[in-house]
Nucleic acid binder design. Sequence first.
RNA 1: GGGGGCGUAGCUCAGUUGGUUAGAGUGUCGGCCUGUCACGCCGAAGGUCGCGGGUUCGAGCCCCGUCGCUCCCGCCA
Length: 601
Amino acid sequence: MHAYRTHTCGALRKSDVGTTVRLSGWVNRRRDHGGLIFLDLRDHYGITQCVIEPDAAAFALVDTARSEWVLTLTGKVVARSAETINKDLATGEVELRIEQAAVQGQAQELPLPVFGDHTYPEETRLTYRFLDLRRERLHKNIMLRAGIITSLRRRMIEQGFTEFQTPILTASSPEGARDFLVPSRRYPGQFYALPQAPQQFKQLIMVAGFDRYFQIAPCFRDEDGRADRSPGEFYQLDLEMSFVTQDDVFAAVAPVLAGVFEEFGGGKAVTPHDKFPRIPFAEAMLKYGTDKPDLRNPIEIVDVSEIFGRAEVEFKAFKAKTVRAIPAPGAGPQPRSFFDKLNEWARGEGAAGLGYIQFEDEGGALVGKGPIAKFITGAALTDMAKAAGVKAGDALFFSADAKPDRAANLAGMARTRIGRELNLIPDTEFKFCWIVDFPMYEWNEDDKKIDFSHNPFSMPQFDREKFLGLDPADKDTILGIKAYQYDIVCNGYELSSGAIRNHDPDVMLKAFEIAGYARDETEEKFKGMINAFRHGAPPHGGTAPGIDRIVMLLAGEENLREVTMFPMTQSAQDLLMNAPSPANAKQLKELHLRVVYPEKS
RNA sequence: GGGGGCGUAGCUCAGUUGGUUAGAGUGUCGGCCUGUCACGCCGAAGGUCGCGGGUUCGAGCCCCGUCGCUCCCGCCA
């Protein structure tokens, strides 16, 4: 007989009755009846009830066992009587009658009980991650993650993609997020950087003549975390293809994502891969107030600046401002507190408030109610109702600001909030869309200059010769240029960001020149890539869906830590392994480093 | 860097207007119990109220500072 087990704790069935078996696992739960002890033994595969009576030789030893001890138990499989069958257990028709027992590992009093589905503070969970991972929810999530990654790999390979590894120790990139630096021992004062993404490498792979690359790629960014953004590190399904248009990339990626969501989505409806709506960035900002709209939310924002601008509408607070109207279907009869609460929330977000009108039917005519309703009457009111698609029984909220961006942002947040308050967001579907036509540049008001708005390596949607002839002073034209850049959004989460790349060295130098980089500066910073583009670069493009977020959505979780095996805290500490930690004097000396601590004020 | 929430027994939490010896559940330990599957019953031990300072006759509670976890803003090409 095997030293530890003949079966797993999830294996035994009625057909095994009468055989002698050996199980190993953790004590999930112990029920001591004095003359009779039940132990639920748990392993990766399941739980089996084991039982022992006082006359058995192993009783004294089993009597000492406590929760989370690791035991090896040997004995006969017996059938349970009809009234003692546990339908909640796969092994519930049988139990193990313990004849021999061995303790493989004892457990101290637990800082974090494994049994049960209680919630525990993050600090405890992270310090004792190995215990937390034993619990059903995390164990299941981590297995789901593994299944999803396996499926993604298979789907990519089936589509003719090949997985390549790219360096982890590489050069710092001047654009984008803060880098993690690794000091060089052999080159005093010089540093490697961990890649923020394999962006330049995958483009070089295309220039090198490989086609259809992918990688389950670790990415490192020294930026603060959020519930949907791990601090420090995360994984992307990084991919790149040669000789492709934007449509080709869409056609390759959408089936992979939709397929994985159908496979692991637990029966929730998934947008068909060839029916992802394509929403231009500008339209998304107008209709949803964000570039990552949750399309499950039926609310669509409309611009009503023109109506508030009319002479007969005497509501001064909204004059000469961008005014966005957010319909709240069915909210008309809500109590005053509903509207006050939203108004208060908007103030908390730094807005002046959130004006509103309630629409009612009075003798067949549509009338407005509420604090500002008296300013909007007659044609203005009916035009507004028509534009926003509201009727009697609905309400309309207003987000107004002199700056269009701010009006749009607040409207977007209000849309989400109202959708939630009114229970308009069904939890039964995964709604995908493409956000396309991102602007290439944006105006930096602080520095009074033109910046890249997203990815500097994207190809501008602009005639090549005209682009090369652009004068950086021609601000309006430049700010109107769109890029072949696109995101995949699902249920309000940005899952993926990608682009058709700029593989033309002249256009690239010009693109950076417009953003304020001198030619020789760009040449120096992106030497490797620009040099490669001068030796025969194919048109190429790709994208990189975030794996952690995909798993999070499919697990129904709202925090990435729930789908990450060993996550860090929000402040980027690993409480289990105790990282970061100081380097010793010898290490520092070898690396030619001296630490200068910040002064305490 | 900024704002909000939380921090009390091994664990999860309660703790009134500042007032006697800081409570409950769970776990642990001891006793009883032969069919439980959140087993049950009886008893016991277990506390730097995150840390430091202040106000007060008296602080878990009020004030100031600080640390940790968390959510959000900034940041994330």
